[in-house]
Amino acid sequence: MYPKRFIQLFIIFFITIFISLGIVSLFNVSGFWLQGILITIIGYIVLIIPLTTLTILKQRKKFSSNTDSNSDEVFNNTLAKVENVFVLATKSETGNLTASIVTFKQSASDDNVFFVVTGSDTERTANIARNGVAAVTTWYDEKTGARFSSKHVAASVIADDQVQATLQKHPEIKALDDNFNNHVIIQLTLDSALVESFRDQPIAVSF
């Protein structure tokens, strides 16, 4: 228990005892058992109200910290801790799932957009070209277990003449490869992500 919460509980308990004794004295209640019962009931009622209030406030604070604008900062902080490696899952036309390990590069202009360079003849390229969906999860940080994943990813294949135009708009992609012959660029746009770690509660981030 944190010292702050211990002090809060002590003050509430202290006030509760005096309120209970004051009410018993005010109505001139006599008898050991009757006094004990009334003090117990009154004390419980007086004690439960502030404790319930403190619990509700704590839960609201915890919820708000997981859903406010700081979630974007949490996402980017997590991204900075992990390697630029995705487990990229795609789905074939028949519904079969394929998972592969790929390196990625985050867009310099959009936090939720990532790029992957891969062969034009790979199964993941064919799957994304057919249905335009994917799922991703990053490696986790060894110290904190921080990572993020997303099942809500819009995926598209950038090929042929579009490759050079995309490289001009996003030169950061060149860090992934220096040879784009027979290669395509896969663009992954996350609608939302789940940030997790060993220490903290999961945080859902929407973009």
Rank of each mutant, 00 (worst) to 15 (best):
R147E: 10
P171C: 12
T118I: 10
L38M: 06
L188I: 03
I12G: 09
I186H: 03
P202A: 06
I185P: 09
A129H: 08
T98V: 06
Y2W: 11
I15Q: 07
A146P: 14
A175F: 07
F14K: 04
H152Y: 12
F6L: 09
Q201R: 09
D161R: 04
V163P: 03
A126G: 00
F14L: 05
M1L: 12
N127E: 01
V136L: 02
F148E: 04
L47I: 15
F114Q: 01
V117L: 11
T118L: 07
V136W: 05
L47E: 01
F86Q: 08
V157Y: 03
G22D: 08
T40W: 09
F18Q: 13
I41D: 03
F104N: 03
T67K: 04
L21R: 12
I11V: 15
I56E: 00
S206P: 00
V113L: 13
V85Y: 14
S206H: 01
D141M: 00
S71V: 15
D160L: 01
G119I: 00
T52V: 14
K61H: 12
L57M: 10
S192I: 03
P50T: 15
Y44S: 12
T55S: 09
T125W: 00
D191P: 00
L34Y: 10
T16Q: 11
F14M: 09
I7C: 11
K4R: 02
P171F: 13
A108S: 13
K143G: 15
E196K: 11
S206G: 08
K62V: 14
N179T: 05
F6M: 12
K58T: 08
K174N: 06
S64L: 14
